[in-house]
């Protein structure tokens, strides 16, 4: 550990490109430990690319990504996960042909103790009692809302220090969206640092501590959630 300055997630001057098209340009941001930090931006602003860069799925061409003092920039994805990061991906991405319980167990893939895994599984089932009932169901046959539970539960199975959420409210009904935000808040209250990528400005800023706005691959605004809700940059980023 290299002191307080490197606690939490630090993204420094990250440039990421697919083929030759630049997607992220000089993105710098921080997700402070124990807080909810959000990243707002419209479709195509580069939000998912940033998540992919953090996870090592699309490594950045330039810049540095550090988590709790560990440099993640050139690590393969499974080592990024080993550093204590979990991701709830865009579109939930449950393994459709696996059962609910198999999906959850994959979330805790790197935990070797069966006892610890059983305890975490129990906790997920306490949070989502429906999943306990359906634990032998093939995930692909569940509704979108149920799959969202599987995806969130799976993300918690590794007992992560940092949880990355990529548009968790996408495609859910308004009631489920609200419930989803409550769950995110509860996860954070248990001490997990949250980095939340969203398009849903109002509800996101309502639970976030700090936020950034991404537009065309650049950070165009940053501030406390309260400040951001007042600034016009947020609106500009969405409505041009």
């Amino acid at each position: 550990m290299s002191g307080d300055a490197e606690r939490g997630l630090v993204v420094e001057d990250v440039h990421t490109a697919y083929d030759k098209a630049d997607v992220l340009e000089a993105v710098s941001l921080r997700a402070e430990r124990g807080k909810i930090t959000c990243l707002l931006g419209s479709n195509g602003s580069g939000k998912t690319t940033l998540i992919r860069s953090i996870l090592g799925l699309t490594p950045p061409n330039r810049g540095r990504i550090v988590f709790d003092g560990t440099d993640l920039t050139d690590l393969p994805t499974h080592k990024v996960i080993a550093a204590g990061i979990a991701c709830i991906p865009e579109g939930r991405q449950v393994f459709p042909k696996l059962t609910v319980e198999e999906n959850l167990r994959l979330g805790g893939y790197q935990e070797t103790s069966p006892k610890v895994l059983a305890r975490r599984l129990d906790r997920v089932y306490e949070t989502f009692p429906l999943l306990r009932e359906r634990r032998q169901q093939i995930s692909g046959t569940m509704s979108g809302g149920e799959q969202a539970m599987v995806s969130i539960g799976r993300g918690l199975m590794s007992a992560p220090k940092l949880l990355l959420l990529d548009e968790p409210s996408l495609g859910l009904s308004p009631i489920l969206v609200k419930e989803n935000f409550n769950i995110i808040r509860r996860i954070n209250e248990e001490g997990i640092t949250v980095f939340l990528v969203e398009q849903n400005v109002r509800q996101t800023l309502a639970i976030a501590d700090f936020g950034y706005v991404l537009s065309k691959g650049r950070v165009v605004a940053a501030g406390t959630a309260e400040d951001l809700s007042k600034t016009t940059e947020v609106h500009r980023a969405y409505f041009g």
Binding site: I81, P89, L106, Y109
Partner: peptide, 8 residues
């Protein structure tokens, strides 16, 4: 997604 579960 398997990679993001921590699978090598």
């Amino acid at each position: 997604t398997a990679k993001t579960m921590g699978i090598n």
